[in-house]
Design a protein around this nucleic acid. Structure first.
Lengths: 244, 244
DNA sequence: GCAAAAGTGTTCTCGGTACACCCATGC
DNA sequence: GCATGGGTGTACCGAGAACACTTTTGC
C-alpha cells in the first residue's frame, strides 16, 4: 500500500515518489470496426517505424498529460478519419510488463464503430505506410499484443451488440432490414432466421419506416428504416431492455 | 499519432519521448466484496494521510515498475487480508485528468470476491486507521473518484453474476440453497422465488449434494452443497452457458 | 422469363413465473 | 407447542425456433 504513503507521505516525512514510477507511460489503442455489407472489418495501419516495422497494428497513441482517455481516443480517430462524435467503448487495460519492447506502457483498449462509407483516409498521416480494412477473422499477426486486444474487443462487441442498440453505428442512417440482419450475422458469427429477426426487431417499435425504397437493385427493392434514438431513450427510462 | 513516432522515432531523428509523458503514474484500485448472509458488503479503509485524510476509500496502490496489473491487485489484497488466489475481475480504467489532486494518476479498477469469514485484518497495515465492511448501498462518500469506481464495479458484478458462476466465491465451500439464493437477492437487489430458484440451479447439475446438514439452527436444517468447478469446466467446453 | 432478394404467418416446444402447504429442528 | 426457515409440484403463458411460398425488380 505504498501508493498512499508515497503519494501522500507528508505526515511520514519527505518520501518523494520514486522516479521509477514515472519511467512508464500510458496509451490508448482503438479497434475501429466497420461493416462492408457482408463482413465485419477492422481498420489497421501498416507501421512505418520500428519496432514492428511493416507490421499491421491498431491505431493508438500515448495519452497527453492533460487529456482524458476518451479524448485521446477521439483525437487519434479524428486525425485518421476526419470523423467526430464517433461511438466508442472502453474494453480493458493491457498492462503486461513486457508488452512494449521500449518501456513500460500500459494501454487502455477501446473499440469504435463507424459507418465504413463515411471513412476517408487522411493522406497526411505520416506514421503509417498504409491503411486497410481487414476482415476481422482473417487478421493473423499484429504488432505488440494487438492481436490479444483485437480479440478482446471483438468479444466485447459480440456481447454488447445483443443488449444495446449499438449495431446501428455501423450502418448508414437509412438501412434495410436485410442489411441489419446481415450485420448481426457478421458480428455474432451465426445465421439468423429472416422472419424471426424481422418480427423481433420490428416488435420493439424502434425502427421508423421511412416510406422510401432501395434504388437500383436487381431484385425487389427493400424498405428503408432508421433507428429512433429518441424513442429508445424514452423506453429505457421506463425499464425497457434492448435484447436480440 | 505522435506515440508511434516518439517512442519509435529513430528513423525521424532523435526525438526523445517527452519527459512530460512520465510525470504520470498508474495505480490499481480494488473493490473487495463480501457477503454477510443478508447484505452485500464492501471492505473500505479509512485514510490515515492527506489528501482525503479521514475519508473512507477503496484499497489500491501504485503499480510497481516490474509488476503486472493483476499482480499489483493481488499484492495489495494479500497484504491487507492474507488471502491468496482470490477471484478478481478487471472492470474499467479511470483516467480523468484531475481525478487525483497530486498528479496525473490513471487507475485500473478491479473487484474481488472473498468469503467474508476468511477475512482477518492485517494489524501491520499502517496506511489506514481502520477497516470496515460497509453495506454497499449505504456507502455515501468516498475519497477521490472511488464512489464512481464502486458503482461501476457493483454494476459489473450484477451483470457478471448472472452469466458466470462467480457468486460462489462469496460463500463458504459448503453452503445451503437458501444462502445462495439470499446472495443472489443481495447482488441483484430483487427477491427471487424460492422454488423457482431451487429448480433452476439444481437443473444445471453443478451443485454436489454433500449429504450433510446444517447444524445448530433453530429450524429444520438445510442440506449442504458445494459447487462443482470441475464439472462446470467440462460443461462449458461442450457449449454450456451458466444463466440465472 | 429468369435470377435474386424482399416480404409474409402459423405451429410447436420449452423455459419462466406464479403460487401454498407440510416438515424438521431449537427453545 | 410454537416459531423459524427448509423443502416440494403444478398450471399457465409467452417467447423463441422452425419452416415455404409469393412478390418485385433488373437484365
Amino acid at each position: 500500500m505504498s501508493y498512499i504513503s508515497k503519494l501522500d507521505g507528508k505526515e511520514k516525512g519527505p518520501i518523494p515518489i520514486s522516479q521509477e514510477y514515472f519511467k512508464s507511460a500510458f496509451s490508448v489503442d482503438n479497434v475501429i470496426f466497420g461493416f462492408d455489407g457482408t463482413d465485419l472489418r477492422v481498420l489497421l495501419i501498416k507501421r512505418a517505424f520500428k519496432p514492428f516495422l511493416g507490421y499491421w497494428a491498431l491505431t493508438g497513441d500515448l495519452v497527453y498529460p492533460h487529456e482524458d482517455l476518451d479524448e485521446a481516443v477521439q483525437r487519434v480517430l479524428t486525425e485518421l478519419t476526419g470523423l467526430k462524435d464517433v461511438f466508442m467503448e472502453q474494453v480493458k487495460a493491457f498492462g503486461e510488463v513486457d508488452r512494449h519492447p521500449e518501456g513500460r506502457v500500459i494501454t487502455i483498449a477501446y473499440y469504435s464503430l463507424i459507418d465504413i462509407r463515411r471513412y476517408t483516409p487522411n493522406p497526411d498521416a505520416a506514421f503509417a505506410t498504409s491503411f486497410k480494412w481487414h476482415k476481422v477473422r482473417e487478421v493473423k499477426e499484429l504488432a505488440f499484443d494487438h492481436m490479444k486486444i483485437l480479440e478482446a474487443c471483438f468479444e466485447s462487441l459480440k456481447q454488447k451488440v445483443r443488449s444495446q442498440p449499438i449495431g446501428f453505428e455501423l450502418l448508414p442512417d437509412k438501412f434495410t432490414l436485410s442489411q441489419l440482419r446481415q450485420l448481426y450475422e457478421a458480428i455474432l458469427e451465426q445465421p439468423l432466421d429472416k422472419r424471426n429477426f424481422r418480427k423481433k426487431i420490428l416488435s420493439m417499435n424502434l425502427l421508423v419506416d421511412l416510406n422510401e425504397m432501395q434504388q437500383g437493385v436487381a431484385h425487389r427493392p427493400a424498405k428503408l428504416y432508421r433507428f429512433d434514438y429518441k424513442k429508445y431513450k424514452e423506453l429505457i427510462s421506463k425499464g425497457f431492455n434492448f435484447d436480440l
